[in-house]
Design a binder for these strands. Structure first.
Lengths: 124, 124
DNA sequence: CAGAATCCCTTAGGATACTG
DNA sequence: CAGTATCCTAAGGGATTCTG
């Protein structure tokens, strides 16, 4: 595990950035998306993400758990099972993510056009 | 400048992440927030941000410009002046950012409570 | 099964110095 | 004023190996 991951003395970023600092890492959104349809166990989650390493997934889940976005439920069978469930707080992010997704979809062509213009100006 | 910054062969991330990969860096949202009230020149922008280095600000502005979120207007005086203006595409992000900000403000207490619980469980 | 520990490489971004 | 050019460090995250 990364040292200092659970430091309690973290500096408070500007409030607009608080969410993003914690949620906008490489996998969080995809994890949330996967859990929105129902609880999943660790390896099921890992398979549904495709590309994530178990170290990164663990790290992502710990952060989401710490922030109250997902809940980790240990089922004491043998071998052990762990289910991850989205919390109400996590669910409250759904509309936000949908808005982001909508914006992305509708604006993508315009963004790509802008990129082409920019790159063209640079090339000459 | 960072090598590969303007690569045209960038891989396309999952669409939900496209926006975030480009906008959720350390300074973009704050830059957008500052420019929403009106155009600003480079150093004015730098002062209004407080803490950003000029290298990071330049990098942030170039990316926003490339994605069509801000426009860079050179005013050929002496010494040279440069104004940064938000584009209509950039403005279309405003409601999104407000939503993020709202979520952050209303959910912050709950997030912090979750963090305390998590850290407490860990400590023992 | 669900991780923890370790190694390693890449990148973001701060500090600093210089320029048209 | 508005950058560019370097150097440098810290953190993210992939790959791999080990364990209760």
């Amino acid at each position: 595990m990364l040292p200092g991951m659970f430091d309690k003395t973290e500096d408070r970023p500007a409030s607009s950035r608080l969410l993003l600092d914690q949620i906008a890492d490489k996998w969080s959104i995809l994890v949330l998306g996967a859990l929105c349809t129902g609880p999943l166990r660790f390896n099921a989650l890992k398979r549904s993400l495709d590309g994530v390493t178990q170290a990164s997934l663990t790290q992502t889940l710990r952060r989401l758990e710490r922030n109250g976005i997902v809940e980790r439920m240990v089922i004491s069978t043998s071998p052990i099972a762990v289910e991850y469930v989205i919390t109400p707080l996590g669910r409250s992010l759904e509309p936000l993510f949908h808005s982001i997704d909508d914006w992305t979809r509708t604006s993508l062509p315009e963004v790509e056009a802008a990129r082409r213009r920019f790159d063209e100006r640079r090339r000459t």
